[in-house]
């Protein structure tokens, strides 16, 4: 299936979203190519999670459209969603199941054939470092392992687009490093879009960055481009502050 996916895996145009009278997302347009890791950067409450929820079909936009691998997500949700792997802010784990059962359930849910699941399960567990805990009940695992199970469920079916909402939150420094390496690897074969408010994360994992503020995308460039913001090379952190303040 990956061979058939076109180069642009995710394309969102003019997404808007209101909650009641409060406009949370204003005309957001995004494009994601295969083999690319895009970092969605922004302060807390900038609308990152809402945008990601819309991209995965958990929330309907008030206007705008989304295409996943050329399939309209709003018109053909079942077809389009089979190409998405999503890790929300809180990993969606059934705490009473064991890791293997849960991952098999997640794979079947995305329409994987039972014959292909054994291999996919082994691969996902190996990539996320879950080999030793396959039979453990998810509720008994530490936060770091639960986060890994959350990532494993998002990648087990080999989706074209992987959406990760703050994937390294709550992890210790070693785990963060492992997860970053994993996301970098995933970015080679899939498209990854992740939200974060940590600049070091963007610097070490992403090819491209989009900065979101008050529900709008205010800046988008490659990492190198952002480091050279305004023509003078500087630290990403300083440039981020300059960008957000300039457009305040």
């Amino acid at each position: 299936m990956p061979d058939a996916t076109p180069d642009i895996t995710l394309c969102a145009r003019n997404l808007t979203r209101r909650f009641g009278s409060r406009q949370v997302v204003h005309g957001v347009s995004l494009q994601l190519r295969r083999g690319e890791v895009l970092g969605l950067l922004g302060h807390n409450g900038a609308g990152k999670s809402t945008t990601l929820q819309m991209l995965t079909g958990c929330l309907l936009p008030n206007s705008g459209n989304i295409e996943i691998c050329g399939i309209d997500l709003l018109r053909d949700p079942a077809l389009a969603k089979a190409h998405i792997g999503y890790l929300p802010e809180t990993p969606p784990l059934y705490r009473e199941l064991n890791v293997n059962d849960y991952l098999v359930f997640a794979a079947r849910l995305r329409g994987m054939k039972p014959a292909a699941i054994g291999e996919a399960l082994a691969c996902a567990r190996q990539r996320c470092g879950l080999e030793a805990v396959g039979k453990k009940i998810i509720g008994t695992l530490s936060k770091g392992y639960q986060q890994r199970v959350g990532i494993a469920q998002a990648i087990i079916h080999g989706p074209a687009v992987i959406v990760l909402d703050e994937p390294t939150v709550g992890l210790d420094p070693t785990q963060i490093r492992e997860i970053r390496t994993l996301i970098r690897e995933l970015g080679d074969a899939h498209s990854v879009i992740l939200s974060t408010h940590m600049l070091s994360e963007v610097e070490s994992m992403c090819d491209r960055v989009e900065i979101m503020q008050h529900g709008k995308l205010i800046y988008g460039d490659t990492i190198a481009g952002m480091a050279n913001y305004g023509g003078e090379p500087g630290k990403l952190e300083d440039n981020f502050i300059r960008i957000t303040e300039a457009l305040e």
Binding site: Q53, A78, A82, Y86, P88, T90, P92, R95, L109
Partner: peptide, 14 residues
Amino acid sequence: RNQTLALLLSAPLS
């Protein structure tokens, strides 16, 4: 409450 609904809502299911 456990926010597991996102798994079902983002899966190719009606």
